[in-house]
Amino acid sequence: MKINFISNYINHHQIPFCDCLYRKLGEDFTFIQTEPMEEERVKMGWAVDARSIPYVHLLYEEPEVCRGLIEDCDLLLAGWMEQEELIAGRLGSGKPAIRISERIYREGQWKAVSPRGLAHKYREHIRYRNKPVYLLCAGAYVASDFSLIHAYPGKRFRFGYFPETRHYDGKGPEERKAEDGPVQIVWAGRMMPLKHPEFVVRLAEDLREKGLDYRIHFIGSGELEAQLKGEIEQKGLSDRVILYGFLEPGEVRKKMEESHIHLFTSNHLEGWGAVVNEAMNSGCAVVANSEPGAVPYLIENRVNGMIYREGSYEQFREAVVYLMEHEEERRQMGRRAYDTICSLWNAENAAAQCLRFYENWQKGRVEPPAEGPFSIAPVIWPGRRSV
């Protein structure tokens, strides 16, 4: 079995999944990177030495080799890329292929009625509806976008991103969290409008007014950083809110392991949100907005995390206060979050389900698992999901 994964570039959210396939298939697994990583991602600590990864081929250095890999593989996994023409022939060939996509209408599903947009979506997706071309939905609202254009009917499955999964001895990551003292809270990401980092400063002020003992680890940088830093100093919160700037991914995970609560405040423009995987794997009780793609797939409200509706700051604050005042429930949610990632939403399981999918396809059937990666993606309409 030869599998080729083609996408714009490889990053630390994809490498664990690719490593699993490489361990299982050896040289029969390859990844084609179509362009270098953009400078902003490099500055965030995402830089990867693609040339050092044995299964990675660079389209801009080996164009003919890469085209051969696309045509010759048994199963093509196709992520986002600028040059759709690279895979058009392969998608129409009758050999199996799987598109991996985030939302195509995240800025508004009204865009689905655009004649120009529909023509583009026809060329890219709709014309393959009767071919063995399937869709992995990297986010809970992806299936609803594609249902609007009648693409991949009956062929849409759950997927996502799979950063490194860590397994811990004993009580798991809970042992790394302080039992006494302030409740440790972490937020990590780019400080930009769609991620609503201003919620953190507002929350810090409200928690102080309630007399709650906490420390917030505020990790990241971006266009709002200077403004937020000024507000923290102005409100006298510097002793409670610690600013770190960008940290290497390993350092971010360390802070998550030491924290009791993780805050995920991104809005509907966040396609997935891999920090949720990482925080859950670190045993955090996650408080998350309902809008980003990872949340409905990974979190069951009040079971392995807390979900607040559509950007409501009041619900967000109430959820954090609840977790701070109910220590045992917070611990239970953290444990269940850890179990969710270790048992289901991880790269090893995703790779195993990928291989199982192709083996079943060869036998003339597709049998999705009941849950997790490669299970049937339900159509969840943005703003209509009850939490």
Rank of each mutant, 00 (worst) to 15 (best):
W46D: 06
I53V: 13
S114T: 00
G305F: 08
L136Y: 03
A143L: 12
M306I: 11
R106V: 01
D19W: 09
W187P: 05
R127S: 08
K24W: 04
E251G: 10
E209V: 03
E348I: 09
I10K: 01
H12P: 01
A294M: 02
E164V: 04
G222P: 00
P63F: 09
V186F: 05
S290L: 14
M37A: 12
W345N: 02
F162M: 06
D72Y: 08
P249H: 11
F5T: 00
R317Q: 07
I216R: 01
C284G: 04
G45I: 08
L91K: 09
E328R: 14
E71Q: 15
K24E: 15
A351C: 09
F5N: 09
N301S: 10
D28W: 02
I341W: 03
L269I: 11
G92M: 05
A274L: 14
H120A: 00
W381I: 11
G68K: 15
S101H: 11
M256H: 03
A50V: 13
L355D: 07
L344N: 01
T34R: 07
W381F: 10
G250C: 10
Y244S: 01
P36V: 12
F29M: 01
I53D: 01
A88K: 08
L298I: 07
K255W: 06
D339A: 15
E205T: 12
A377V: 03
C66V: 00
T265R: 03
K121D: 00
V387I: 15
Q184M: 14
R106H: 05
C342I: 10
S221H: 02
E231Q: 14
D213L: 06
D206R: 15
E359S: 14
L25D: 01
